[in-house]
Amino acid sequence: MRKPIFERTEDEIVSLLHYSYGEAYTYSVLAFLYPTLDFRNKFHQDHIFPKKMFTKKRLSKAGISEEDAEFFMDNFNSLANLQLLEGVPNQEKSGKDFDAWLTEKYPSAAERKDYMAKHYIPDVDLSFAHFREFIGKRENMLVKAFKELLN
């Protein structure tokens, strides 16, 4: 059996999820998840579920309960809602509902499946109302990915 390159505890790996949009090391942590990207291109930290959706007014209009709204507001900038996208796709996606953008940009099921695998997007209902489930499943996927990349 191959010995891990870095010995990391579960807590250390889970702590990587605590990085948020705009913090000093968030881009580096995200870049670690994409070892095959050509970083000669410019990549942006992209909110998977667009940050413009996360206002009290928009959450209320979307029918999000007060309890869920608090969770949404606490987690929209979290690593679990971020991905790296090249500049042009990020601008095309800007402010669009993620599930609508994904279907528009990748019309075939195979293309969507490839995109979701590359970006660690869980196979869950990707509508805004299911943000809580998305975050939980994506955190699990990211922890698993970090473990695999570190070993």
Rank of each mutant, 00 (worst) to 15 (best):
R2N: 11
V14F: 02
K51W: 03
M116P: 03
A80N: 03
S78T: 08
A110R: 12
P50A: 08
M116G: 04
R58H: 08
L85F: 11
A117E: 14
F131R: 01
D68L: 02
A110D: 10
E7L: 13
E66Q: 15
E133I: 12
D68T: 02
V88F: 15
D97T: 06
E10D: 15
G87K: 10
Y34A: 04
D125F: 10
E92M: 14
L142T: 03
F32K: 11
E10R: 06
M141C: 12
L33S: 14
I64T: 00
A62G: 02
Y34D: 03
M141L: 15
L82R: 04
A100G: 03
P122Y: 04
F54S: 02
F32L: 14
E92H: 14
A69S: 13
H44S: 08
R58Q: 12
L126W: 10
S108A: 12
R138S: 10
F134A: 06
Q45T: 06
D46I: 00
E92K: 15
D99V: 11
L37H: 10
R132I: 05
I5G: 05
V29R: 02
K147N: 13
Y19G: 07
L30E: 07
R8S: 04
D125P: 09
A31T: 09
K61L: 06
S15L: 00
W101F: 13
R132K: 10
A24E: 15
D114S: 11
P107R: 10
L79Y: 01
E66S: 15
K61A: 07
W101Q: 08
S15P: 02
D97H: 15
S28M: 12
I121E: 03
E111M: 12
S94M: 13
S28A: 15
T9L: 01
S94V: 08
S94Y: 12
G87T: 11
Y115S: 08
I48H: 03
Y34W: 04
P89H: 07
K56A: 12
F43I: 01
K52W: 05
F146D: 00
T26F: 07
K113Q: 14
N77D: 14
L17G: 01
N81I: 03
E111N: 05
E12F: 09
D11Q: 07
L30H: 07
R112N: 02
P107V: 12
V143H: 01
H47A: 04
L82E: 04
L37N: 09
E70Q: 14
N41Q: 13
G63C: 04
V14P: 01
F134S: 05
F6Q: 08
D11G: 02
R58C: 03
E10A: 10
A69R: 04
E70F: 06
L150T: 07
E92S: 14
T36W: 14
L126N: 03
E12S: 09
F72A: 01
N90A: 11
I64W: 00
H130E: 10
L79N: 02
E7Q: 11
K137Q: 15
K113V: 08
Y115C: 07
F72T: 00
S20F: 13
S15W: 00
P35W: 13
F76C: 05
E23W: 07
W101A: 08
A100T: 13
I13A: 00
A145N: 08
L126D: 02
H44G: 01
D123F: 05
D97W: 14
Q45M: 12
K118I: 13
G22P: 06
A109C: 10
T103A: 14
L16P: 00
P122S: 11
A62T: 01
S60L: 12
K137S: 13
K147H: 11
E92Q: 15
V143W: 01
